[in-house]
Amino acid sequence: MKERPIRIVSIYPTLLGTYGDGGNVAALSHIASLHGLAADILTISPGMVIPDDADIYVMGGGEDTAQVAAANALRASGALTRAVDKGASVLAICAGYQLLGHEFPDADGNAAPGLGLLDVFTDRLPKRAVGELAAEPIRAGLTSVTQMLTGYENHGGATHLGAGVTPLALVTSGVGNGDGTEGAITGRVIGTYLHGPCLVRNPLLAETLLGWAIGQHLDPIVEDAVEELRRERLGSATMSK
C-alpha cells in the first residue's frame, strides 16, 4: 500500500456542483477512511492551478454557462489530460461528463468544444431527462462494480459513444445516454449521468477508484444505512419504470 495519502482533486465545484455532486468527494473520503486509507482533498476554484500528479479527479454537474467556462479553463490548463496520461482516474458527472467528450451544446444550443478525453459527443435530447436512473454495469472487468448502479438524472443531453469508449452500463430504468446505454469509460476515465450523489449510492464505484489509486483491489465494505438507501432507490426506479 502507498505510504502517501491518496490525492483527490475536486475540480471547480463552484462551477460544477449544482446537484449535490460535492457528495462524491465526501464519499471518497468517507470510504477511504473505512478502508484505513488516508486521503487528501484538494478543491480547485477557477483561476487556481490544477495539479497533474493527483490520483483521482472528480467533476460534477452544472449550468450551461458554468459548463462552458469550466471546459474553457480546463482546455487552457491541459492538466487533466496530462494527469490521465500519467494514470490518474477521472469521475465526471453530467455536465462534467459532457465536457470530457469532443463537443457539447452551450446555452444557445451551439456546439462547444470539450476536452476529448472520452470519445463521445453530446447534443440535445428531444425532452429533458429527469428522474431515477438505474443501470446494469457492463461486466467487462473495466471496473469492479458488479451491482446495479443507482442515481438520479437531470439533463437535456443525448450522448453518443464512439469506438474509443465502452458504455459504463445498460439502462434498466430512466434515460442515461439516450440510446439504452448509460455513461462511458475508457481506461480510468469515467463519465456518467448518475447524480444522487453517484458514489454515495454506488460505493463499489468509489472502491474501484480508490483501488486504482493504491494499485490493489479493495474488498467491499458494506454499510447498512447505504444498503437500505440503495434497496429503496432501486425499488422505486423499478416501480416508476
Binding site: 463552484t14 462551477l15 476554484s45
Partner: peptide, 13 residues
C-alpha cells in the same frame, strides 16, 4: 453564494 459564482451574462468567475 454557490449559485452566483460566475457572471450570468458572460460566464466569467
Amino acid at each position: 453564494t454557490a449559485d452566483s459564482s460566475v457572471c450570468p451574462e458572460c460566464g466569467t468567475l
